[in-house]
Amino acid sequence: MDFINIFIKTAFIENLVLSYFFGMCSYLAVSKTVKTAFGLGMAVIFVLAITMPINWLINEHILTEDVMGMDLTFLRFILFIAVIASMVQLVEMVIEKFSPALYTALGIFLPLITVNCAILGGSLFMVSREYNLMESTAFALGGGFGWFLAVVALAAIREKIRYSNVPPALRGLGMAFILTGLMGIAFMSLMGIDPAALGQ
C-alpha cells in the first residue's frame, strides 16, 4: 500500500473518530465552537505526525522479540505512552518559546492530547497492521486530518443547531452523539471509493 492510499483510507473511510471513536472525549468537549475545534484539530495532526514515527522507531528497534536476549514487547504500552506524554510536553515548550500566539491558541488543549486515544491508537494500529515507517507517517497525517475534519464539522453543526428547536433532554450531549452517528453513516458512503484505484 502506498502513501496516498493510506492517507485517504484513514482520513475518510476509516475515520478515527467516526469508525473507531478515537479521541471521543476531547472531540465532544471542544466541539462547541469552531474556533476551539480548529485549534485542537491542528494540535492532533501535529502530535500524531511527530509521535507515530518516533514510536515506529522504538517499536522496531527496542520492542523486538530479541533485544540483548530478552523479549521486551511487554513494555510497549509504557514506552508508547511515555513518548507521547513527553512529546506533548516538548511540543508545548517549543511552541511557547517560538510562537506565543499559537501557544495561546493551542495552549489549553495540548495537555488534553496526551490522553487523546487517537494518538495512542495510531501507534497501536501501526504495530498491529505492521506498517513501515512511510506507511506510519501516512497513517499519522491521514488520521490526524480525518480527526480534524470530523471535529470541525461537528463544531460547525453544533453552532448552527443552537438556534434549532431540540427537545430539552436531547440538547447538548445527546444531540452531539446523534450528530456524530449520522456523520459516521455519511462517511461510510465513501466506502465505495477504492483506495487502490486512486493510488494508481
Binding site: L18, F21, G174, T180, G181, M183, I185
Partner: peptide, 12 residues
C-alpha cells in the same frame, strides 16, 4: 460503528 453513537445519544 456509527450505530453505537446513535444508541448512546438516545440513552442520554
Amino acid at each position: 460503528p456509527a450505530s453505537a453513537l446513535l444508541v448512546i445519544g438516545v440513552l442520554i
